[in-house]
Design a protein around this nucleic acid. Structure first.
Length: 581
RNA sequence: GCGCCCAUAGCUCAGUUGGAUAGAGCGUUGGCCUCCGGAGCCAAAGGUCAGAGGUUCGAAUCCUCUUGGGCGCGCCA
């Protein structure tokens, strides 16, 4: 970063001179951009400055490039400058400058790659799965992506808070309560017909058994009424009837016992599951709390008072079409109960009230149609919808034995995140998920991930880290002193492998900032793979411990810096950096 | 029907925001330890960037159309 700043100053000076001479119009120094070259014949860094300025200056790119180079002040960091291709300016650095990064890494340690705080507060919300069952592998992708993104943004200097929105209100919660009650009745020996649209998973039995342990047969009364719900009624209507029946038969307190047993158990399970996935939240935000503290009523009233609501067919509608949504949306049902959308408006209003500069919501791709109405509501409340970015995570499509695995929460047919973690390890699962760009469809081959986990690229990167640690362990066993590596003469490093490694180390802060800017943690993963490849290649080509002392120190300093950056990068994607494997 | 996302090597995917000869992994083929960890390294083969136009010094990248996939269009959440 410091290097680029120096180069920008140099080229800015050259541009200033050319402007004074009337060769080019006044130019913003910010226009000067350098990129790391792909081929070493192109130098260490290159700029397309002359190509960009050729048109406004009315000159041929190569001529302009020559003029810029001629106007460039002398510098201690550049060894030579070349004009190539259509007008690229290629910059070759002096050797000392190329390896200065080793000292930078060793000085900054775990902070290397992190930018200065920029005083911008970001709230990132992800997973937010309904507490109606265990997390499955689809949620796992959102968790891995969201947490890695939070870490990357923190490293890039943002002040980040993470949040899980708990949908502990609404009809799904009723279905959950009924599902638990019916399984409870089965446990008590009653004959019940369990509806297809109830929650079928085995975990419902476990929750019901827990209720039975705590309350015995207390809630068995009047299950006979269940017979009134005949099979030919429309399933959702039949469910409504069941819910009413359960409420009537259990009473408010008993109904609450069923529901609370389920929500508490499932939320606790989700919490533990994510914790073991190395995913932690700053806050768990309850949807229920929005009902209880009046936020929803208050928000709906505000929308009504500001003329954004109207009544039709007995319901209250939000005029979201006025803000670009394809049609208007109900916020208060005919029966007066707020919709999920109404709660979500109140939730976003709450978010905005907490002083953040920016909001990121990580949603499953199937929710994309929901974005316009949320942004519409934010606009209607007089808030800036551009502060909210919704990142869509495509579903991971599972394959088992070459066949697509069907997933349905209600039917209970899915692979849980916990199963995945236990089969392939948390590290492998997280690395695997984050490796893919979030908006790409992803094929997750379970057989490959489970039975041949050694093929997983995470081991490749972790192995590089462990390898460096192993070299230092060897050094210790041989009585080699590695305490004064900061004094190593890095000028002894001249090999191509060493130059390549140093260049990769220098790139890391730029990768972090690019990953943050694009909300693309997968860039970290690709970088790590390249750095690990550089280390493995170097390791195979050279000895570290058996060479002359001064060269040995220089090489050890270099690979220790590589180890540090591998550890920093792995931490950004929530994967451990083991010292041995 | 309308809308959003996507299409790159046999398979799974990158591609530094419009740059130089489009790159990795897996798979295939052939090589590499008397040595710090072979979970490694090196090399080869493999491409009409779905197709057709357009924008310009320059396009996998931006615009239009066509084809082919995924998803969404509830007073569900």
């Amino acid at each position: 970063m410091f290097l680029k700043k120096q180069l920008i100053e140099l080229f800015g000076a050259a541009l200033g001179q050319l402007t004074r001479e009337g060769v080019i119009p006044a130019t913003d120094p910010e226009l000067v951009r350098f990129e790391r070259t792909r081929q070493k014949e192109h130098g260490d860094l290159a700029t397309n400055l002359a190509l960009v300025l050729a048109r406004p200056a009315g000159r041929k790119p190569r001529d302009l490039a020559a003029a810029i180079v001629a106007a460039l002040p002398a510098s201690a960091i550049i060894s030579k400058v070349e004009i190539a291709g259509p007008g690229f300016i290629n910059i070759f650095l002096r050797a000392a400058e190329r390896f200065a990064v080793v000292g930078d890494v060793r000085a900054a340690g775990a902070r290397y790659g992190c930018a200065q705080p920029r005083g911008e507060r970001v709230l990132i919300e992800y997973v937010s799965a309904n507490p109606t069952g265990p997390l499955h592998v689809g949620h796992g992708r959102g968790a891995a992506y969201g947490d890695a993104l939070a870490r990357v943004l923190r490293a890039a200097g943002f002040d980040v808070a993470s949040e899980y929105y708990v949908n502990d209100a609404g009809r799904q919660m009723d279905i959950l309560a009924v599902s638990v009650w019916l399984r409870y009745l089965e446990l008590c020996g009653s004959e019940v017909r369990f509806p297809d649209n109830g929650y079928q998973g085995d975990y419902i039995y476990d929750i019901a058994a827990g209720v039975h342990r705590g309350h015995g047969d207390e809630y068995v009364q009047s299950s006979g009424g269940l017979g009134k719900v005949s099979a030919d009624v429309e399933p959702e209507a039949a469910m409504d009837a069941l819910i009413d029946h359960a409420r009537g038969s259990l009473g408010a307190a008993g109904y609450r016992v069923m529901q609370a047993a389920a929500v508490d158990t499932l939320l606790e399970d989700i919490h533990n599951d994510l914790e073991q996935f190395n995913v932690n939240y700053d806050r768990w935000f309850s949807e229920c709390s929005l009902f209880e503290n009046g936020s929803i009523d208050d928000t709906v009233a505000r929308l009504r008072d500001t003329g954004h609501l109207y009544q039709r067919d007995g319901a209250w509608w939000f005029r979201s079409s006025r803000f670009g949504d394809e049609k208007d949306r109900v916020v208060l049902r005919e029966n007066g109960v707020p919709t999920y959308f109404a709660a979500d408006i109140a939730y976003h209003r709450d978010k905005y009230s907490r002083g953040f500069d920016r909001f990121i919501n990580v949603w499953g791709a199937d929710h994309h149609g929901y974005i316009p109405r949320v942004k519409a509501a934010i606009s209607a409340l007089g808030l800036d919808p551009d502060c909210l970015t919704v990142t869509l995570v495509q579903f991971a499509v599972l394959y088992r034995a070459g066949e697509k695995v069907s997933m349905s929460t209600r039917s209970g047919e899915f692979v849980t995140l916990r199963e995945l973690r236990q089969e392939v390890s948390s590290d492998a699962a997280r690395f695997f998920y984050v490796q893919r760009k979030s908006d790409q469809h992803m094929d997750f081959d379970l057989d490959l991930a489970k039975s041949r986990s050694n093929d997983n690229p995470v081991y490749y990167v972790q192995y590089a880290h462990a390898r460096v640690c192993s070299v230092f362990n060897q050094a210790r066993e041989r009585g080699i002193d590695t305490s004064d590596l900061d004094a190593a003469d890095l000028g002894l490093l001249t090999d191509d492998h060493e130059l390549e490694l140093a260049a990769q180390l220098a790139r890391f802060p730029e990768v972090v900032s690019a990953a943050a800017a694009g909300l693309e943690p997968h860039q970290i993963v690709y970088y790590l793979r390249e750095l690990a490849n550089g280390l493995h290649t170097y390791y195979n080509a050279h000895q570290f411990l058996t060479v002359a002392v001064s060269l040995r120190s220089a090489r050890l300093a270099l690979i220790d810096a590589v180890r540090q950056v591998l550890a920093n990068g792995l931490d950004l994607v929530g994967v451990s950096a083991p010292e041995r494997m």
